[in-house]
Simulated assay, not measured.
Amino acid sequence: MSLSAAEFEVHMLNKDAAGNTMVFEPAFLQIAPGDTVTFIPTDKGHNAETIKGMFPEGGNEFKGKVNEQFSVTFDVAGAYGYKCAPHFAMGMVGLIVVGEDPANLADLQAARVPPKAKAKFDELVAQIGQ
């Protein structure tokens, strides 16, 4: 484990400052292996969990309970798509990229998700490497 491992926070919100509803803030993170992300239910009624087929082989699958704060340490490089289960159809999704070049990006883009979630993922994937 790296001594310089960083910690990040992702807030689960009903609405962000720009007026977007049912969002993770930030919805996109690019982190290093060994970094930890804490999911914080700032507004009630949300959770965070990986989406089937949207995380790298050997990577951490995670599933938080609704209204539960929890942390995940990411040791395996790749792209991790996650959702708020109650608001998945409304496009409440996020993307964490561990490392520089996610090898599982094609799998992530091929996964079947609701249309609003797919549109959001397309926006998030466009941020990789920027």
Score class of each variant (00 low, 15 high):
Ser2Lys: 12
Ser2Asp: 10
Leu3Ser: 10
Leu3Thr: 07
Ser4Lys: 12
Ala5Tyr: 05
Ala6His: 12
Phe8Asp: 00
Glu9Met: 14
Glu9Pro: 04
Glu9Ile: 10
Val10Met: 06
His11Met: 14
Met12Asp: 01
Asn14Trp: 13
Lys15Cys: 06
Lys15Arg: 11
Ala17His: 14
Ala17Thr: 11
Asn20Leu: 03
Val23Leu: 00
Phe24Arg: 00
Glu25Tyr: 11
Ala27Val: 08
Ile31Ser: 08
Ala32Gln: 14
Ala32Val: 08
Pro33Arg: 07
Pro33Ile: 01
Asp35Cys: 05
Thr36Lys: 11
Thr36Ser: 08
Thr36Ala: 03
Thr36Met: 02
Ile40Phe: 11
Ile40Val: 10
Ile40Leu: 05
Ile40Lys: 09
Ile40Trp: 08
Ile40Asp: 11
Ile40Gln: 04
Pro41Cys: 09
Asp43Thr: 04
Asp43Lys: 01
Gly45Phe: 03
His46Ser: 06
Asn47Thr: 08
Asn47Ile: 04
Glu49Val: 07
Glu49Leu: 11
Thr50Ile: 12
Ile51Ser: 09
Lys52Ser: 13
Pro56Thr: 00
Pro56His: 01
Asn60Arg: 13
Gly64Pro: 05
Gly64Asp: 04
Lys65Phe: 08
Asn67Glu: 12
Asn67Thr: 09
Gln69Tyr: 09
Phe70Thr: 05
Ser71Tyr: 14
Val72Cys: 07
Thr73Leu: 02
Val76Ser: 06
Ala77Trp: 02
Ala79Met: 04
Ala79Arg: 07
Ala79Tyr: 11
Gly81Glu: 02
Gly81Lys: 01
Tyr82Trp: 07
Cys84Leu: 11
Pro86Tyr: 10
His87Ile: 04
Phe88Thr: 03
Phe88Lys: 07
Phe88Asp: 04
Phe88Gln: 06
Ala89Gly: 15
Ala89Cys: 11
Met92Lys: 03
Met92Phe: 02
Val93Tyr: 11
Val97Tyr: 09
Gly99Phe: 08
Glu100Val: 13
Asp101Gln: 14
Ala103Leu: 08
Ala103Glu: 14
Ala103Phe: 10
Asn104Phe: 02
Asn104Cys: 01
Asn104Ser: 02
Asn104Gly: 00
Ala106Ile: 09
Asp107Trp: 08
Leu108Thr: 06
Leu108Glu: 05
Gln109Cys: 06
Gln109Leu: 11
Ala110Lys: 05
Ala111Thr: 01
Ala111Arg: 03
Arg112Tyr: 11
Arg112Asn: 15
Arg112Met: 15
Pro115Phe: 11
Lys116Leu: 13
Ala117His: 02
Ala117Ile: 07
Ala117Lys: 01
Asp122Glu: 13
Leu124Cys: 02
Ala126Asn: 06
Gln127Asp: 00
Ile128Asn: 00
Gly129Arg: 03
Gly129Cys: 02
Gln130Ile: 04
Gln130Ser: 14
Gln130His: 14
Gln130Leu: 12
